[in-house]
Design a protein around this nucleic acid. Structure first.
Length: 516
RNA sequence: GUCUCGUUAGCUCAGCUGGUAGAGCACGUCACUUUUAAUGAUGUGGCCGAUGGUUCGAAUCCAUCACGGGACACCA
């Protein structure tokens, strides 16, 4: 939807809007009356939720009030019901919503008619003092004896009942979304708690949080297209990181044995319900451990999250129900028959897989290797069926370029991916620490890049150098925080767990196009 | 990137067999001291996303573009 209208910043300034002008006039009048429409102080002495808790006993009092108590609350006016000489307003702060009873005769002479009724409106932020009482309809409210304007809103709020539902407007103007849809705050409170708990969990386990560069001379650690920027002083291009992996492993070489980083990665790729150009992940690396230890710690991590988030371990996600008490573990090949329902005689035979895929109407390159074909089968027939948390292990080496080979079976790697609600949540493996093997794999990537694969790795000689000094056997894991939060909050678009998701600029914001 | 649906008042939406715009809320005015999407009366408000085309006439039909939602493809 193209929005050039006043509320959304576009071609016209918000001040051109007639409603805004009307309110600007009220600001002017207030100033003339000696009232500061942008006060710099509030005497608030409680929050709304505390007020409601502390005064819950009023319900049981004889006269349903206690004039000896006095509180001052602040918040934004969400509803306003004026009835002649008395009014009800609902104000909302971060903690909750409170009804205020405002009567003319309880306020200073003239205030109700000249100031309150004419110049204080829905959207304004006010401070109200008074005593608790319960209305005839049984709602614990506040009986006002003072009312002060703290901040005048000159932009009108969206409609009080439907609020703002237009997704574009909600994402572009998240502040308005948060004002109108207070339940949205809850998602971001959970997000914040998940990150905080994740940090605490790993710290308690003895992991050290580290910060590695966001601007890389070589974009490594994943296969993805990077964003490029330029460092003027050095006269060199830099890439926003696509993954922190290679730096974290350098630190393991250096002697840190348990480290993690929670931070943003940037990938210059398409956007959809599960992809945003910048996204948050945790990567952690653990020396002298294998992917099996990672399976154990991952289970513990989820247990910890559910304990502390106070979430039921039987969690709805869309029309699915995920049982977080039922962690399963199954090798990839085995999952093809046991979960995918594919005949066992097919899954280890390249020609039979090709025939099977063709029969199912799935087109693939016939040049794919057995391991790649097994990956295809998994994506097509297994992934979406993995509702309860499932560790898929023993990935074919062909589709696991960064993972260490299994010592006994060189066709598979010491790796797992964790799937929940049909979606990949974590990727982990025992790390490759043979510098020559690593060098060869980089070389193969460089060849692929020269052949046109612009997501292939570049050669990172310094990383090979680092491995040459010896990296202790190490297991490493990445967890996509955004997708984890989606899962825990039952959200189905990554935009709903990002406060400010990436959006295309509105037409008036186009810039630098002529310079291209 | 492909397909598909959408864009009309500040917000939520009607109007789409082509005849130059409608509701509710919001806003203005009036009434109202226990309402809660308060109520009643009354009034203001729109270059119908942009640009072209068809037509006597376009919000409505066609084309292109912009932005957004959903699905698919790729990826985390």
């Amino acid at each position: 939807m193209s929005r050039k209208k006043t509320i959304t910043t576009g071609e016209t300034m918000i001040f051109d809007n007639k409603f805004v002008q009307q309110k600007m006039q009220k600001v002017q009048t207030l100033k003339e009356l000696g009232i500061n429409p942008y006060a710099n102080h509030s005497d608030r002495n409680t929050t709304i939720s505390k007020y409601l808790n502390v005064n819950a006993d009023i319900h049981h009092k004889e006269d349903k009030r206690d004039e000896k108590r006095h509180y001052i609350v602040s918040g934004r006016i969400k509803l306003l019901r004026i009835m002649g000489k008395a009014s009800f307003i609902n104000i909302e702060d971060e903690s909750g919503n409170l009804q205020i009873y405002v009567a003319r005769d309880n306020l200073p002479e003239g205030f109700y008619n000249t100031i309150f009724k004419k110049h204080i409106e829905v959207g304004d932020i006010v401070e109200v003092g008074g005593y608790p009482f319960v209305t005839g309809k049984g709602e614990l409210s506040l009986h006002a004896d003072s009312l002060k304007l703290l901040t005048k809103a000159i932009a009108p709020l969206p409609e009080k009942f439907h609020g703002i539902t237009d997704k574009e407007a909600r994402y572009r103007q998240r502040y308005l979304d948060l004002i109108m849809n207070s339940e949205v705050r809850k998602t971001f409170q959970i997000r914040s708690r998940v990150i905080s708990l994740t940090r605490r969990f790993f710290e308690d386990k003895g992991f050290l949080e580290v910060e590695t560069p966001m601007m890389h001379p070589i974009a490594g650690g994943a296969n993805a297209k990077p964003f490029v920027t330029h460092h003027n002083a050095l006269g060199v291009d830099r890439y926003l990181r696509i993954a922190p992996e290679l730096y974290l492993k350098r630190l393991i070489v250096g002697g840190f044995e348990a480290i993690f980083e929670i931070n943003r990665n940037f990938r210059n790729e398409g956007m959809d319900a599960t992809h945003n150009p910048e996204f948050t992940s945790i990567e952690f690396y653990w020396a002298y451990k294998t992917y099996k230890d990672l399976i154990a710690i991952t289970k513990e991590y989820f247990e910890y999250l559910f304990d502390h988030l106070d979430l039921p371990t039987y969690l709805p996600y869309g029309d699915m129900e995920v049982n977080f008490n039922n962690f399963r573990e199954i090798p990839l090949i085995k999952s093809l028959s046991e979960i995918g329902g594919i005949d066992e005689s097919i899954v280890n035979d390249k020609e039979k897989i090709l025939a099977f895929l063709k029969e199912k109407g799935i087109e693939v390159e016939s040049s794919l290797t057995l391991g790649q074909l097994q990956g295809e089968l998994f994506d097509e027939f297994v992934e979406e069926k993995l509702i309860d948390p499932t560790f898929i292990t023993e990935y074919p080496v062909d589709i696991s370029p960064l993972a260490r080979r299994d010592d006994e079976n060189p066709a598979i790697t010491e790796r797992f991916e964790l799937f929940i609600a049909g979606r990949e949540i974590a990727n982990a493996f025992s790390e490759l620490n043979d510098p020559i093997d690593q060098y060869e794999r980089f070389k193969a990537q460089v060849e692929a890049k020269d052949a046109g694969d612009d997501e292939a790795h570049e050669m990172d000689e310094d990383f090979v150098n680092a491995l040459s000094y010896g990296m202790a056997p190490t297991a490493g894991q990445g967890i996509g925080i955004d997708r984890l939060v989606m899962l825990l909050t039952n959200e189905h678009s990554i935009r709903d767990v990002l406060l400010f998701p990436a959006m295309k600029p509105l037409s008036s914001e186009h810039q630098n196009e002529d310079e291209e």
